[in-house]
């Protein structure tokens, strides 16, 4: 099963390689990864998606926690949360397909952020499943290039 794990880290050189080294050294899998500064400039948030049985995920979270530079590890699957990915898609946009591409982008609440004579660059955010849906629909029109970010996630506010 897929798990999104959020890790708060000291923002120091070499910290990312401690995390990725742990995954490669212990044979754990990283499907996607995203890191950036948080509100505190000396703290980074790293979000990674991994998969494995519960015992593997338990080891992953424990081993992450054991790293000296790690402040907090949260398995987002144990919480109600929102997850997003971003994709930039260069899609063919010639005279007869421009309108259709725009319509599709509009339906999925994406944006065209670069316009060329024969292509658009489309910006999309959403869950992985939504991005996949857009990619599937745009593919027959002609996708030239895709760049996707890793997943980022945040827990939802408590209900009461």
């Amino acid at each position: 099963m897929k798990h999104t794990i959020s890790v708060l880290l000291q923002n120091k050189p070499g910290v990312l390689s401690r995390v990725t080294g742990l995954f490669s050294g212990r044979g754990f899998n990283i499907e996607s990864l995203s890191v950036a500064q948080t509100l505190e400039p000396d703290v980074s948030c790293l979000t990674l998606v991994t998969s494995g049985e519960d015992t593997i995920i338990e080891q992953i979270t424990k081993q992450l926690h054991k790293l000296i530079d790690v402040i907090k590890v949260t398995d987002m699957c144990e919480h109600d949360n929102v997850e997003r990915e971003m994709a930039l898609i260069r899609v063919k946009a010639e005279a007869h397909t421009r309108a259709e591409v725009l319509r599709i982008v509009d339906i999925f609440r994406g944006k065209v952020i670069d316009v060329g004579p024969k292509s658009y660059v489309v910006e999309l955010t959403g869950k992985a499943s939504k991005l996949q849906a857009v990619i599937d629909i745009l593919r027959p029109i002609g996708i030239q290039e895709i760049v996707r970010s890793g997943t980022i996630a945040m827990t939802r506010a408590p209900k009461s």
Binding site: G14, S17, G21, I68
Partner: peptide, 14 residues
């Protein structure tokens, strides 16, 4: 050496 010993130390520093 910090890179080399990352997986075999409890922690390391440069």
């Amino acid at each position: 050496i910090v890179g080399i010993t990352r997986p075999i130390t409890k922690h390391n520093y440069l």
